[in-house]
């Protein structure tokens, strides 16, 4: 059986690509770091992969609005390919800047419709805007697991991960959008305190509506999250691992990558030829 294949998008200002790639590789995935130029010139194709990952960073400097320019490239130039990728039942994850890109491209909360992708007002239903604190902050947060996603199987009720962003405040366009997200169980993580209870700043680092930290599409296969699971991949990345009684190899974010790879193995590769993937 062939291995799950992951494409990690790169462009000017991408900067969490290598650790994200290493995280997928740890669980046996084959990972390519692919510059957007290669997709535009058709030297690379989404078709060849099972998982699309958009890593953290400051694509194009986050000039104008974070993630905006890369989001436009995706929806305006690669809309059809993305539509097909999603329709094939494959996985997408966007972390931090990647999450910002996914919402600004209308891929989250979804369902993404390539037909409408030329009109931003039609497709962008939520946003990630400036933190209430008005500044970039790197700090660790507790996340309460709410929704259902292929990426969060067997995750504990509370996950401890770092955030590092200036524009992470989740805001839906209106109450209807929010209700729908809740109804369809698309809210995957909410910021919480150490006991899983609702909290305010700094436990909620940015003032997100309903403390939303991560959402998925209705199928749960597309995940966007502000916190960085690749930065709690090893236990030694835990901010006070030297205090922990139980020594372990992996940190609390590793499972998310393992889930993605396992999902591909079980649902897309198991017992049949690779779905929609040319090898």
């Amino acid at each position: 059986m062939s291995n799950p294949r992951v494409i990690i998008l790169r462009t000017a200002g991408t900067n969490c690509d290598q650790e994200t790639a290493s995280a997928f590789r740890e669980f046996g995935a084959e990972v390519d770091l692919v510059h957007m130029n290669l997709l535009f010139s058709k030297k690379a194709s989404l078709e060849d992969y099972h998982i699309l990952a958009i890593p953290g960073g400051f694509t194009y400097g986050d000039d104008i609005i974070s993630g905006r320019i890369l989001a436009n490239e995706l929806r305006l130039r690669l809309g059809q390919e993305i539509q097909k990728f999603i329709d094939d039942g494959k996985l997408i994850i966007g972390i931090c800047n990647g999450f910002q890109v996914l919402v600004r491209a209308g891929i989250l909360p979804g369902p993404f419709e390539a037909q409408q992708a030329q009109d931003l007002r039609q497709i962008q239903k939520v946003t990630l805007t400036y933190n209430d604190s008005g500044r970039f902050e790197d700090r660790w947060v507790h996340l309460h697991l709410d929704g259902k996603s292929a990426w969060t199987q067997d995750l504990g009720k509370i996950t401890f991960l770092p955030v590092a962003h200036a524009e992470g405040k989740f805001v839906p366009a209106d109450q209807g959008v929010l209700n729908k997200l809740n109804r369809q169980r698309q809210v995957v993580f909410r910021y919480c305190d150490v006991h899983g209870k609702p909290c305010t700043y700094p436990g909620d680092p940015n003032g997100s509506v309903e403390r939303i930290a991560a959402i998925s599409d209705p199928t749960g296969r597309i995940l966007g999250m502000m916190p960085h699971p690749e930065r709690h991949f090893w236990q030694t990345q835990h901010p006070f691992w030297t205090r922990l009684e139980k020594k372990e190899k992996y940190g609390e974010g590793a499972r998310i990558f393992e889930n993605g790879v396992r999902y591909v193995r079980e649902k897309l590769l198991a017992g049949k030829e690779a779905v929609g993937v040319k090898n």
Binding site: C16, Q18, E19, D138, P162, R231
Partner: peptide, 10 residues
Amino acid sequence: IRQYDHEVQG
């Protein structure tokens, strides 16, 4: 310190 990303590159 918090304004600096001190964890990128993992």
